[in-house]
Design a protein around this nucleic acid. Structure first.
Lengths: 342, 342
DNA sequence: CTGAAAGCGCTTACAG
DNA sequence: CTGAAAGCGCTTACAG
């Protein structure tokens, strides 16, 4: 591999000049620049990024940590991040945590080892020790896309999970449902905890008793939705509606309902969460909560860019969601309808 | 940030000894080791990966290049790669090319700039100039997961696209179909070119005329399948079967068929490709060609590991596919059936 | 506008 | 078992 030295020798200048001619052409005389460019091309010079980063103490790289690479949810978020990152000369490194918060660690360490300038975590499930040092300060440039509660204000961009879950449940209650079950994620994750709280508080507000065995936790995959859906629909007093905290899980429910010959939505309403592309392609099309995924990505990156520029960014951004009404939810059968006085 | 120097000072030894004690504890006396470990912990030392990589001329990082991050196809492949990579101490960097072969370039350059030790391309659409130098040799450690044709044997792991496409078409022909359309990817991509060849050659083998306007190229997304499906199903002499070269496109076709009140499979058979998780969750469940995604990932990584170890690996690995029969394909209506003499 | 020199933080022959 | 010294390839005050 050719180095600055080779170029310098061939061009008959110093390595300092080579470096300048290539990085700041305007500070070098036109003829020198020409000579250097020619020499560089001739030897096929390509700068060593490691050496540059080491010397400049910046890598112009950030790592985006995904909770898992399986969900198509993250691809739009990554698109949003990419757009902004590239515009500002940052490279993206994507790390997959495979749903294990232990594996997050190796990606966070990339900052300590100076291989990245900052971290964008799309996982909310981050142990505080990875972010905060013994003095109680944030120890690296980081933005978390998701809910995060801490004494220290970690910059965060998220939707209002509590309110979004509430909107979904209210939509069902307004249509007369009261036997409403819920398939959610691990409640150790603040995102799902907030949604479940939104769910139960709304139920209570309408004087609908909440039965804990109708709120089921899982990894929100297709198969989990299918299995938990089966469990719910096998209950003696089975629900007239199931709200799922992912579209995938909702599609799993759709499948088991079909197999059990329970027509959706006439006998079972199903609501998803995320509004993934595929929610328009299932049968029936899914009523769901839209998350502004691209915007989440852009906003997170914007915040991180501000941090990297030494500014104190807004510590928290809440982005809007939207109930998308399609075909999978409707009023329940008359005998299962709640009479509400509005 | 603490450096070896800080640790050395505190432990009362040289930086060389610090480096040894941390990297090769066994070559250092137990007491020194203890001292160094204590000092390192005390100052919160974390080695600078950049400096180490620069010095050792290896980064223990490889980049996995995805054609686009949107398709869930790649997540299992990445899982396969990850498993093996981590076991061998390699970190994974994931680059998204966003379906533009120009963007591949920036990821390939990570090798020249020494930030990665090798490249694993999940995109087949790689300009030869990115791989081969002016002397006609492969200029970086690379494995391509996909079809790749070149005078130079670039290590490749792939399925037999020609044969797999053939199997799908033959399945339809055996059931009596002859009006078989095809929704495929860009034929500039060797993968899809091979599949189309498999498709048309099989048709010809059975003396079924191939009409070019029934072979449509697109990006194989849901919406592309939907739109091209509409185009095909609006034809005067519309097909009795559509084979799609992705499951997403097939699901798009399923949707437009539903909207046009064309029952699948009784009046229209649809076959997908990939056997993604969601192909079991659509209606009707999709008959499709299974690709061993995890195995593709593992095998590619295995090859790359061999290259990185200085061995000459098998230049080409072909992995098996499988026709997965579900509900979306059946014999065509009697009046559209081909009589074949077996 | 240009060059000599220092230094980013590490590792590794080499010598003892 | 340990240390002094060189060097990976770059960039940047500093001096001219």
């Amino acid at each position: 591999m050719a180095t600055v030295k080779d170029v310098a020798r061939l061009a008959g200048v110093s390595t300092a000049t080579v470096s300048r001619a290539l990085a700041n052409p305007e500070v070098v005389s036109p003829v020198t620049r020409r000579k250097v460019e020619k020499a560089a091309a001739e030897v096929g010079y390509s700068p060593n990024g490691l050496a540059r980063s080491l010397r400049k103490s910046e890598s112009k790289t950030i790592v985006v940590v995904l909770p898992n690479i399986d969900s198509t949810f993250f691809s739009d978020v990554v698109h949003g991040i990419e757009a902004l990152a590239h515009k500002h000369g940052y490279k993206l490194l994507i790390g997959d945590a495979g749903n294990e918060s232990s594996r997050l660690g190796s990606y966070f360490e990339l900052f300590e080892s100076k291989q990245v300038d900052g971290v964008l975590s799309l996982s909310s499930d981050v142990p505080e020790s990875m972010i905060i040092n013994s003095a109680g300060e944030i120890k690296l440039p980081i933005v978390i896309a998701g809910e995060y509660f801490s004494d220290i204000p970690v910059p965060t961009v998220h939707i209002d999970n509590h309110y979004s879950a509430k909107k979904g449940v209210e939509y069902l209650i307004m249509m007369g449902h009261y036997k409403i079950a819920c398939i959610t994620g691990k409640r150790s994750n603040p995102i799902y905890n907030a949604r479940v709280n939104g769910h139960t508080e709304t139920m209570k507000k309408w004087k609908i008793p909440v039965t804990e065995d109708r709120i089921l936790e899982c990894d929100l995959s297709y198969i989990a939705g299918y299995n938990l859906g089966k469990q719910l629909l096998s209950l003696d007093n089975k629900p007239s509606a199931i709200v799922c905290h992912s579209d995938e899980a909702a599609i799993g429910v759709l499948k088991i309902a079909r197999e059990m010959n329970i027509p959706v939505p006439s006998e079972l309403s199903v609501i998803g969460f995320d509004n993934l592309a595929l929610s328009e392609y299932c049968v029936p099309e899914l009523t769901t909560i839209h998350q502004p995924r691209q915007l989440i990505g852009e906003t997170s990156m914007k915040l991180l860019l501000e941090i990297l520029a030494g500014k104190k960014p807004n510590p928290e951004m809440t982005l809007p969601t939207q109930l998308i009404v399609r075909e999978s939810a409707c009023p329940p059968p008359v005998d299962q309808r709640l009479q509400v006085d509005l």
